[in-house]
C-alpha cells in the first residue's frame, strides 16, 4: 500500500543489519542445529497454546528467541536510539495482509528468513522456488496497488 513516505537509500546500514541477521541465523544453526525461520519459530512457539500449530520440540529456545526479537526495539529506545517506521494504517488491508502472510508462510514452509536467508544459503531448490515466487508476487502486488489501481 501507499505510505506516502520516501525512504532514503541506506546501503551501509542495510548491509550491516543484513550481516547481523545472517550471524543470528548461523548462531541458531551452531547452537540448536535449526533453520532460523521466523515463521517456523513462531509456529513452534504457538504450539504451546494451540494444538496443531506444529513444532513440538525446542520450544524453550524458540520462545526465548521471540522474546529477544521483541526486546530489540525496546533496547534501541532505552539506549536513546530511534526506530524510524511508517506502518500502513488502513485496518482491513492490514488484517488481510497478516492473514495472508501467516497462512502463506505456514503452507509454503517458510518466509523471508527461512527460505530467503537460510534456504538460499543452503542452495536449496525448494527455497529458490519459494523466494522467486513470493518476490515476484510481492513486486506485482505493489505495482497493481500503487500504479495500476493508483490507490492512495
Amino acid at each position: 500500500m501507499e505510505t506516502g513516505t520516501i525512504t532514503p537509500f541506506t546501503p551501509l546500514a542495510s548491509l550491516g543489519g543484513g550481516v547481523m541477521i545472517g550471524l543470528a541465523a548461523v548462531m541458531v544453526m551452531a547452537l540448536f542445529g535449526r533453520i532460523a525461520g521466523i515463521a517456523g519459530i513462531t509456529r513452534g512457539t504457538l504450539g504451546v497454546i494451540l494444538p496443531g500449530a506444529g513444532g513440538s520440540d525446542g520450544r524453550d529456545w524458540r520462545a526465548a528467541f521471540l522474546l529477544g526479537l521483541l526486546a530489540a526495539p525496546v533496547l534501541v529506545m532505552v539506549a536513546g536510539g530511534r526506530v524510524p517506521q511508517t506502518v500502513p494504517e488502513a485496518p482491513f488491508p492490514m488484517i488481510l495482509a497478516g492473514l495472508l502472510v501467516g497462512v502463506g508462510t505456514a503452507l509454503g514452509s517458510g518466509c523471508t528468513s527461512g527460505h530467503g536467508v537460510c534456504g538460499l544459503a543452503r542452495l536449496s531448490r525448494r527455497s529458490l522456488a519459494a523466494v522467486g515466487t513470493f518476490m515476484a508476487v510481492a513486486f506485482a502486488t505493489v505495482f497493481v496497488l500503487r500504479h495500476a489501481l493508483g490507490a492512495a
Binding site: M1, P88, H115, T133
Partner: peptide
Amino acid sequence: GSALFGLGWGIGG
C-alpha cells in the same frame, strides 16, 4: 503458500 505470502507482504510491507 509462497504466492499467498508474497501477496500479503506486498499489501502490508
